[in-house]
């Protein structure tokens, strides 16, 4: 009973199967084709818009890396090389003594160097910086806003969804083209 009955049944099933396969193929093709037409050849990477950043500190702790791939960077062209730098000295620091107790940075990541009295150059030691943004807040509130946070792409592993972006209260993270991976502050 089986042989004759099975044969056409099997072919019918195969036929349906091929039909559905064709349909699925067309579906996947249509969806990806449509997206491919719109896609860019280059990749995108995560970056912080310094105009939106509020230096809340989440960058230091929400990154999947530790220390975070977000570091403080310095727009030297914006900096006034102040002797009393609000990104370098604690708000309550009596004056401009460079003792550790007067420094704002909890990890001592800002290095200060005399250029010419009373101008000082400030540089970030990224090995020490954890991206907490404390100096960014200080410089932003009382200084020129020359210190700001950026995702450092030598460190960032470019997660599909950036964990910091999801936790950012200021919506400051966005994807930028990989060939222009930084949103630097410039002289206005």
């Amino acid at each position: 009973m089986s042989e004759q009955k099975e044969q056409p049944d099997l072919t019918r099933r195969d036929f349906i199967r091929s039909g559905v396969r064709g349909a699925l193929l067309a579906g996947v093709g249509a969806a990806t084709g449509g997206l491919l037409a719109r896609s860019r050849s280059g990749d995108t990477v995560w970056q912080i818009d310094p105009e939106k950043c509020i230096a809340c500190g989440n960058c230091a702790t929400y990154c999947v890396l530790k220390p975070s791939a977000v570091k403080c960077v310095h727009a030297f062209g914006l900096c006034e090389y102040c002797e009393k730098c609000f990104g370098y000295f604690d708000l309550d620091a009596p004056d401009v003594e460079t003792g550790a107790e007067n420094q704002l940075c909890p990890t001592g990541a800002i290095k200060r160097r005399l250029v010419r009295e009373p101008q000082y150059e400030y540089k970030i030691d990224e090995q020490l910086c954890i991206g907490c943004g404390k100096c960014v807040a200080g410089c932003g509130q009382f200084g020129m806003g020359a210190l700001f946070l950026q995702v450092r792409h030598d460190l960032c592993i470019n997660c599909n969804e950036c964990a910091i972006a999801a936790a950012c209260p200021a919506d400051a993270f966005r994807r930028v083209p990989a060939d222009k991976p930084y949103l630097l502050k410039k002289k206005q």
């Binding site: 050849s41 280059g42 990749d43 990477v45 960077v73 310095h74 727009a75 030297f76 062209g77 914006l78 900096c79 006034e80 090389y81 250029v115 010419r116 101008q119 150059e121 540089k123 450092r152 792409h153 030598d154 460190l155 960032c156 470019n158 990989a178 991976p181 930084y182 630097l184 002289k187 206005q188």
Partner: peptide, 23 residues
């Protein structure tokens, strides 16, 4: 606004921008 008036011998450092991994 003009930036700080720094001595002429001083070269204004650039903000470094390490590149992401190549496509």
């Amino acid at each position: 606004f003009a930036a700080a008036k720094l001595p002429t011998w001083y070269n204004l450092p650039e903000t470094t921008t390490p590149a992401p991994q190549s496509d």
